[in-house]
Simulated assay, not measured.
Amino acid sequence: MAASGHCHLLFYNKLMPWDHAAGWLLHREAGGYSAHFDGSPYKPVNLTGGLLCAPDEESWHAAQQASLTPAG
């Protein structure tokens, strides 16, 4: 759905590669941008740190700021 533009954001808190690695690759090949919640590059071998996928890097940063940055 994300690769075809039917949703804008994907959040994964539990990182088990069999749950999202294929979708992540498809999303990336379609031009999407993904990174761990802290902004570090996604690697399927990392099982912590969450994953945020967005249509592009600018949207990723906006979503990360709005959703994952503490208020204050």
Score class of each variant (00 low, 15 high):
Trp18Ile: 14
Leu51Asp: 01
Ala63Tyr: 04
Ala21Pro: 11
Pro17Val: 08
Pro17Cys: 08
Leu25Lys: 14
Asn13Phe: 13
Gly39Trp: 06
Asp19Arg: 13
Ala62Phe: 01
Cys7His: 02
Asp56Ile: 03
Ala2Lys: 01
Leu47Ala: 10
Ala35Met: 05
Pro17His: 14
Trp24Thr: 06
Ala21Ser: 15
Ser67Trp: 15
Ser67Asn: 11
Ala30Thr: 06
Thr48Gly: 07
Ala66Ile: 06
Gly5Met: 12
Asp19Ser: 15
Gly32Arg: 03
Leu15Ser: 10
Ala21Phe: 09
Val45Leu: 08
Leu9Tyr: 15
Leu9Glu: 07
His61Tyr: 05
Gly39Cys: 10
Leu68Ile: 04
Gly32Val: 01
Glu58Ser: 05
Cys53Phe: 02
Gly72Leu: 13
Tyr12Trp: 11
Pro17Leu: 09
Gly49Glu: 07
Asp19Asn: 15
Ala21Cys: 11
Pro41Gly: 05
Glu57Asn: 04
Gly31Val: 02
Glu29Asn: 08
Ser67Ile: 12
Asp56His: 14
Arg28Asn: 08
Ala22His: 06
His8Asp: 15
Thr69Gly: 00
Asp38Gly: 11
Glu57Ser: 04
Ala62Gln: 08
Lys14Phe: 14
Phe37Arg: 07
Ala3Thr: 00
Trp18Val: 15
Pro41Tyr: 07
Met1Asn: 07
Glu29Leu: 14
Ala66His: 10
Gly49His: 05
His20Tyr: 15
Pro44Gln: 10
Gln64Phe: 01
Gly72Lys: 14
Ala35Phe: 03
Gly72Pro: 03
Glu57Lys: 14
Pro55Val: 08
Phe37Val: 08
Phe11His: 12
Lys43Pro: 01
Leu52Asp: 00
Asp38Arg: 03
Ser59Leu: 00
His6Ala: 13
Ser4Gln: 12
Met16Arg: 12
Asp38His: 02
Leu25Asp: 13
Ala35Asn: 10
Trp18Tyr: 15
Cys7Leu: 14
Arg28Gln: 14
Pro44Lys: 11
Tyr12Val: 07
Leu26Ile: 13
Glu57Val: 01
Trp60Lys: 00
Asp19Ile: 05
Asn13Ile: 08
Leu68Ala: 14
Ser4Ala: 11
Gln65Phe: 03
Ala62Glu: 01
Leu15Ala: 10
